[in-house]
Amino acid sequence: MARPKSEDKRLALLEAAKVAVAELGLGAATSLIAKKAGVAEGTLFRYFATKDELLNALYLHLKLSLGKTMMENYRPGSSVKERARAVWSGYIDWGLISPAASKAMRQLAVSDKITEETLAQAAQLYPELHELAEACVTSEFFSCGQSAFADAIFFSLAETTMEFASREPNEAGNYKTAGFEVMWRAMTKG
């Protein structure tokens, strides 16, 4: 009889995958992930049938964590720009608190490993964020369905903002503001 799966082991595997992907990219070996989680490699495959399944689960796990942080100061009745500013600030704060999670998310978000099903599940976690993204990306440069390109630009701007904010914590607020204004102008008509 198969032993029941433990949520603690599943979370340990996701956390280990986060660190491994942040350190080594999507090519991180499952044996290393299992070792970081303190389990045998066979145990990893009891929880996730394939490495791609693990990466998709990690993507959803990180999206859930990120979404919670981004929604903390989200005010549905405020302007699109103010909602976008709240989401941007939440994203930067999340990245500063969890640099490994941020780095892993950036790699997963622009990879071809994340399935359409997983993307649909992620969009359902916080539908208001998905709607906000649709409302924000109004630049003619992104009007032809280039969401992966827009995501990559967003992540690059956010990464630069996080890098400077982490180097100069006393200026973090100024970097968040400047980074947001650059992102806003790039993604929108104004």
Results as ranks from 00 to 15, higher is better:
A133F: 10
K35P: 03
D8W: 07
K36Y: 01
S147L: 06
P169H: 14
T161E: 11
G95T: 04
A123L: 08
G90E: 03
I97N: 01
Y47C: 13
S79N: 08
R46D: 00
S102T: 12
T138R: 13
G27A: 15
W94H: 11
S65G: 12
E131N: 07
A172D: 14
D93L: 08
R83F: 09
K51H: 01
A84Y: 02
L129Q: 04
S89L: 03
L14I: 11
V39S: 00
L129V: 03
W94F: 15
H130E: 15
F180E: 01
G173F: 04
Y47K: 04
R106L: 12
E134R: 15
F141R: 11
I97F: 02
A40F: 03
E41R: 09
F164E: 13
K63M: 15
V87Y: 02
A101E: 02
E7S: 14
S156P: 04
A123W: 01
E134I: 13
L13V: 09
H61C: 15
M183C: 14
A109G: 08
M162A: 05
L44C: 01
A122F: 05
C144R: 03
A100E: 10
L44R: 00
L64E: 15
A120R: 00
N170P: 04
K5C: 09
A152S: 14
L129I: 06
T188Y: 03
G77Y: 09
L11C: 11
L125C: 14
A17F: 05
E134M: 12
S139R: 07
S98L: 06
C136H: 00
T43F: 01
Q124C: 13
E140M: 15
S147T: 02
A20Q: 09
L108R: 02
K81G: 06
A86C: 12
P169E: 14
R83Y: 07
